[in-house]
Design a protein around this nucleic acid. Structure first.
Lengths: 248, 248
DNA sequence: TAAAAAATTATTGTATACAAAATAAATAAA
DNA sequence: TTTATTTATTTTGTATACAATAATTTTTTA
């Protein structure tokens, strides 16, 4: 029963909450656990196990898993179970392409829609980002790095697009885990700062160009050419039946 | 029990299916029922009732409703139930704005990615659209009109963006139901045809301009200025407590 | 020993039962 | 008659039980 159990502590608050928004809390916890890489891509997410961990029945776990699946962070294989998504190289390219398109629009809208409060919030986000990088807190950095893009989307003032950006940023985190070349990418704080300044200065075209370059740099840092190491090992030793066809 | 029951026939096929992908079928049926306006915005979607109609338990209905809610076609109010979405004017503007942004990108990608088969498929879609319009089959026309944009997104070759377009097209249908000024909008078949020809001719900028104009025209045909008639009636007669605060 | 088949175990899919919340109805007070 | 309050009913939220499917182990056979 505890074979597929992630040994990581998932639930931050163990106090029995007054019923309401229970699944929301569990969703947040699992979302964070995946994005902060405490749950690696490919990990099986057993309903029973998660139910025990969070002290609820499978019913509510199921709801959360379905939500995460719709956001593409989790992949559900019928009759097989839910797994943390393992994005393919194609998917990775798609996500970054979608981000270049949508975030170009976000930047343009942010230039028109900006407020001093919003800009201050962005700067605070970047400084938190730099701090976590200095401390070597990789997990926090990944999260905060995404926060910048989320905040920008909020400033732009279109909730629908902001929701898409949230999804795409999450998926990007998973992609980076799987495909980043070097150990740690050269800090993108400077790029974020440059974007803020272009926006603040009302220089729309420059802000757009900077964002495009930033996202392109992000994709260029990935190693999307060859397949993942696991399958490689098998093909290297020329074993006939590769068993890792779970998440195609 | 049958008070909130939609009297419309929702299930096309009553034969007991061999278990698999049962919720998928129910999802498709409900999706179509909403988009073809057999289920009007604001309609309560009772779990018990739907369960009886489709011959399944609330469990599977719940799954479907949650999926539709994630796609913003249905709105779930905690402890109150699920309702067909009634998009606000703000939301309507957001959706059309998002479409202008995303479908501009779609058009550009479609120009680069086009194939003769794809173009033929598009033309077939438009001709089906025109036929249903000639026949006065409004429901079919709404659906086919959206199909054009969906097919274009598929040609563009980015599944993530295609999924977003699908969502936005669905929401647009709901918006049109609520806010379209005249009874029937001037046929957009011509505009669709023009877009196809610009794409086929490789004229990217023109194709983009046509798409932008098309979507702007769609928004311009809406009456987003004043609130919906229901609330107006109450305010006209200056009754104090308006009870229609369901879907804010 | 190795491969195939059968039986066992575990896990997901679905239905049902019960608890909590919200709505509707009925009664009481102004 | 209208408004408040209480009671009853309906409906959603959650847990649990059972069925169906997939994974694992054991047994059989070559």
């Amino acid at each position: 029963m505890s074979r597929t159990a992630p040994t990581v502590a998932l639930n931050r608050t163990d106090k029995p909450p007054r019923k309401a928004a229970q699944n929301e809390r569990i969703y947040e916890d699992m979302f964070a656990a995946i994005l902060e890489q405490r749950l690696a891509p490919g990990t099986k997410l057993s309903e029973d196990t998660l139910g025990e961990i969070f002290g609820v029945s499978r019913t509510v776990i199921r709801t959360v898993l379905q939500r995460l699946a719709h956001e593409r962070i989790v992949q559900i294989h019928p009759n097989r179970g839910a797994f943390v998504s393992e994005p393919t190289p194609d998917e990775a390219h798609e996500v970054l392409q979608a981000r270049r398109l949508i975030e170009e629009g976000i930047v343009r809208m942010a230039v028109r829609n900006q407020t001093p409060t919003g800009i201050r919030d962005l700067r605070r986000s970047v400084s938190a980002e730099r701090q976590s990088l200095d401390k070597g807190n990789h997990e926090a950095w990944v999260r905060l790095s995404g926060d910048f893009h989320l905040k920008l989307a909020v400033i732009a003032g279109n909730e629908t697009l902001a929701a898409y950006v949230k999804e795409l940023v999450s998926r990007t985190s998973l992609i980076i885990v799987q495909y980043q070349k070097g150990n740690l990418s050269p800090c993108s704080c400077a790029e974020h700062t440059d974007i803020i300044e272009a926006i603040e200065g009302g220089n729309e075209e420059q802000a757009v160009a900077l964002m495009q370059a930033h996202l392109q740099a992000c994709e260029d840092q990935l190693n999307l050419s060859d397949t993942e190491p696991k399958a490689d090992l098998y093909s290297i030793f020329s074993k006939p039946s590769v068993k890792s066809g779970e998440v195609a």
